[in-house]
Amino acid sequence: MRTTQALTITLPLEMAQMVKDKVTSGQYATESEVIRDGLRSLAARDAAIEKWLVEEVVPTLTALDADPSRVIPADEAWRRIQAHMDARTLKKRGE
């Protein structure tokens, strides 16, 4: 049973040249290997985003829903950030 499928794709000229350059440089044996590696990288990025959403974003939103008093308004958050940056600037100057 065949485990691959041939596809015909169209790429912008810059991307097509990048694929060819990867093969010419010897980094990859074929253009298909370049595309496969790119798709593996895309799959890894998608998996990392999914993991972040499930493990960090959802629990954070759940915690905030459970205790809305923990939310800081955006203008207050920016004020705190600016105060922190100002303090660091003064410290660097020795003031």
Results as ranks from 00 to 15, higher is better:
Met1Arg: 03
Thr3Ile: 11
Thr3Lys: 10
Thr3Leu: 10
Thr4Glu: 05
Ala6His: 00
Ala6Cys: 02
Leu7Ala: 07
Leu7Asn: 00
Thr8Asp: 00
Thr8His: 00
Ile9Trp: 00
Thr10Cys: 03
Thr10Pro: 00
Thr10Asp: 01
Leu11Glu: 08
Pro12Asn: 15
Pro12Lys: 15
Leu13Cys: 12
Leu13Glu: 15
Leu13Asn: 14
Glu14Lys: 11
Met15Trp: 11
Met15Arg: 13
Met15Gln: 15
Met15Gly: 06
Met15His: 12
Ala16Lys: 09
Ala16Gly: 13
Ala16Cys: 11
Gln17Trp: 08
Gln17Met: 14
Met18Ile: 03
Val19Met: 06
Val19Ala: 10
Lys20Asp: 15
Asp21Leu: 13
Asp21Glu: 08
Asp21Phe: 01
Asp21Gly: 01
Lys22Pro: 00
Val23Cys: 09
Val23Gln: 00
Thr24Gln: 05
Thr24Cys: 04
Ser25Val: 04
Gly26Ser: 12
Gln27Ile: 11
Tyr28Cys: 07
Ala29Arg: 08
Ala29Ser: 06
Ala29Glu: 06
Ala29Lys: 07
Ala29Gln: 06
Thr30Trp: 07
Glu31Phe: 04
Glu31Ile: 01
Ser32Ile: 11
Ser32Cys: 14
Glu33Ala: 15
Glu33Val: 11
Val34Glu: 08
Val34Ala: 13
Ile35Arg: 03
Ile35Glu: 14
Arg36Gly: 06
Arg36Gln: 14
Asp37Cys: 13
Asp37Arg: 13
Asp37Tyr: 11
Gly38Cys: 15
Gly38Ala: 15
Arg40Lys: 12
Arg40Pro: 03
Ser41Cys: 08
Arg45His: 07
Arg45Lys: 08
Arg45Ala: 10
Asp46Lys: 10
Asp46Met: 10
Asp46Leu: 09
Ala47Tyr: 01
Ala48Asn: 06
Ala48Pro: 01
Ile49Leu: 05
Ile49Gln: 07
Glu50Ile: 01
Trp52Gln: 04
Trp52Cys: 04
Val54Phe: 07
Val54Lys: 04
Val54Cys: 02
Glu55Thr: 09
Val57Met: 09
Val58Pro: 03
Pro59Arg: 11
Pro59His: 08
Pro59Ser: 12
Pro59Cys: 08
Ala63Phe: 07
Leu64Tyr: 03
Leu64His: 02
Asp65Trp: 02
Asp65Ala: 09
Asp67Cys: 02
Pro68Phe: 04
Pro68Gln: 05
Pro68Glu: 08
Ser69Cys: 06
Ser69Tyr: 05
Ser69Lys: 07
Arg70Leu: 13
Val71Arg: 03
Val71Leu: 13
Val71Pro: 01
Ile72Ser: 01
Ile72His: 01
Ile72Gln: 05
Pro73Gln: 08
Pro73Tyr: 03
Pro73Met: 08
Asp75Glu: 12
Asp75Trp: 02
Trp78Pro: 07
Trp78Ala: 09
Trp78Thr: 10
Trp78Arg: 15
Arg79Lys: 12
Arg79Glu: 12
Arg80Ile: 04
Ile81Ser: 02
Ile81Gly: 02
Ile81Asn: 04
Ala83Ile: 09
Ala83Val: 04
His84Met: 12
Met85Thr: 08
Asp86Lys: 11
Asp86Met: 14
Asp86Trp: 04
Ala87Thr: 14
Ala87Asp: 13
Arg88Ser: 10
Arg88Gln: 14
Thr89Asn: 06
Thr89Ala: 15
Thr89Val: 13
Leu90Glu: 14
Lys91Glu: 15
Lys92Asp: 03
Lys92Asn: 10
Arg93Ala: 14
Arg93Ser: 09
Arg93Val: 01
Arg93Asn: 06
Gly94Met: 08
Glu95Thr: 06
Glu95Asp: 10
